[in-house]
Design a protein around this nucleic acid. Structure first.
Length: 436
RNA sequence: GCCGGGGUGGGGUAGGUGGUUAUCCUACGGGACUGUGGAUCCCGCGACUCGGGUUCGAAUCUCGGCCCCGGCCCCA
């Protein structure tokens, strides 16, 4: 049977969509209170947009194809490049900073696993042209508030700064591919390989020692002071440290304090955060939910100069994205047994064929007042109507029967208590609104 | 791309050393029952992931594909 879904894709049914929509709405609300505005870019782009940024190797992870005019097209694998493209195309001369957010699906041709699908959703933002420590602080504060409003339990925001690591390497004359390779090993957490690699590059022992120490450091602002002592003669590192300290101080003003204090806060300084991508330059952060194991990272971001790669005027940007599916995974982990919220509030049940017209009139009246209402369309027999209404989760059932109607009445049954009221047919709306 | 575990009605399952009509729960349809039966009882519907092999006979053994789950690689 060829009616199956393509590998790595999912269908979302009613309950799951309700949950996803609710999370989406919460994130939109938070982002908008930070003055971000929504954008939407195409689901597919020219292949070159992504190869320009990441090289030809990424093609085997893409859903790419030729269109009927032989253009090389690909389904987008991520959203930062399209957003940068949008900026280049139509926003270069807009006043900075530009704050925008997006929500949409991306596609990668990969081996599907838990929390990893071939179509997946990202919810993220970019602030273009606002590279200051205070801009970085605001972004972290917004990510934090998002998770607070979603009531996510047990997450950790790890913040690092690539200027410290890259500065240290540059002072030791390690640049170019060697530097990128070292950053990649740090990102993966391959300590042994990192040590071996350091032996093969021309780096003095003292710097190598300091580097290995730094990437292990986690905690509060005392971490930065410890590093400062070790690198007092290295100008680039000191500059980055100053910037990072400023960021941490500003975070206080944005309402995030006690950094590194696990009892009271979720933000921790982690100088081992490297992010695999070469174009990240300054602050970087990742958010983990440790109980999710292999899929614990639900968010990543930082400061980069992607626009420069595309040949525009140099503009620093800062952005991050939630892996929406993993975020849902983390949220549902906590509240599995919550009972589903019904969509409809009122069910209108015609007891006999002659009362159908009246039933439709009542249903429309309620719907125009914004009350989610279902009315029998299947000509079900009366005895099935109550059971059907029950299954829909209706709070109230309006029984429209001939006997009642002769006196101008209908019966409103409260499905929770079983209590019934006889109500004038033209007063149904008031009665429902009262009982809310 | 690699390693391992799986796939039985719409959902959840039993059976598995080959052998009658493939078990149970639930959901769904109908009836008992033409205004309160949201219950109960009865009846019905509906499945061995696909293809090849072994065999008189395969849900069961075997090989391959597809898909799912877990782990690795990767994760722009």
């Amino acid at each position: 049977m060829e009616l199956s879904r393509p590998r790595g894709t999912r269908d979302f049914l009613f309950e799951e969509m309700k949950q996803r929509k609710q999370v989406e709405a919460t994130l939109k609300k938070v982002f908008e209170t930070y003055a971000y505005e929504e954008i939407k870019t195409p689901l597919f782009e020219n292949l070159s947009l992504f190869t320009m940024k990441s090289g030809e190797e990424i093609v085997d992870q893409l859903y790419n194809f030729k269109d009927k005019s032989d253009r090389e097209i690909t389904l987008r694998p991520e959203l930062t490049a399209p957003v940068a493209r949008l900026y280049m195309n139509e926003m270069q001369k807009s006043p900075k900073p530009i704050k925008m957010y997006y929500y949409g699906s991306c596609f990668r041709y990969e081996r599907p696993q838990k929390g990893r699908y071939r179509q997946f959703w990202q919810f993220g933002c970019e602030m273009i042209g606002g590279k200051t420590p205070e801009a970085d602080a605001e972004i972290i504060a917004m990510a934090s508030q998002s998770l607070e409003e979603l009531n996510l339990q047990g997450y950790e925001i790890h913040v690092g700064h690539l200027g410290i690591l890259r500065g240290l390497l540059k002072e030791a004359d390690v640049e170019g591919p060697d530097q990128d390779q070292i950053m990649a090993l740090i990102d993966k957490g391959e300590l042994e390989e990192l040590q071996n690699y350091l032996k093969t590059v021309n780096i003095d022992e003292d710097t190598a020692h300091v580097l290995l120490m730094i990437i292990e450091m986690k905690g509060g602002s005392e971490v930065l002071e410890k590093v400062r002592e070790k690198v007092s003669d290295k100008k680039l590192v000191i500059e980055a440290l100053d910037e990072f300290s400023h960021l941490i101080d500003t975070l206080n003003d944005f309402g995030i304090d006690n950094i590194g204090d696990h009892e009271n806060n979720n933000v921790v300084i982690n100088l081992g955060i490297a992010r695999g991508l070469d174009y990240y330059s300054g602050m970087v952060f990742e958010i983990y939910v440790p109980r999710l194991g292999a899929q614990k990272q639900i968010c990543g971001g930082g400061t980069y100069n992607l626009v420069e790669i595309f040949g525009g005027e140099k503009v620093e940007s800062t952005g991050f994205a939630f892996g929406f599916d993993r975020l849902m995974n983390a949220l549902m982990h906590d509240k599995k047994d919550e009972k589903p919220v019904p969509t409809i509030e009122v069910f209108v049940a015609p007891i006999s064929d002659s009362t159908r017209n009246k039933s439709f009139q009542i249903a429309q009246q309620l719907r125009k007042a914004g009350i989610p209402t279902e009315v029998d369309l299947a000509r079900k027999k009366f005895k099935k109507l109550l059971s059907y209404a029950d299954r829909l989760g209706a709070n109230k059932v309006i029984l429209v029967g001939e006997r009642d109607l002769k006196e101008g009445n209908v019966t409103i049954k409260n499905m929770e208590t079983g209590k019934q009221d006889s109500v004038q047919a033209d007063k149904v709306l008031e009665h429902i609104l009262d009982g809310r």
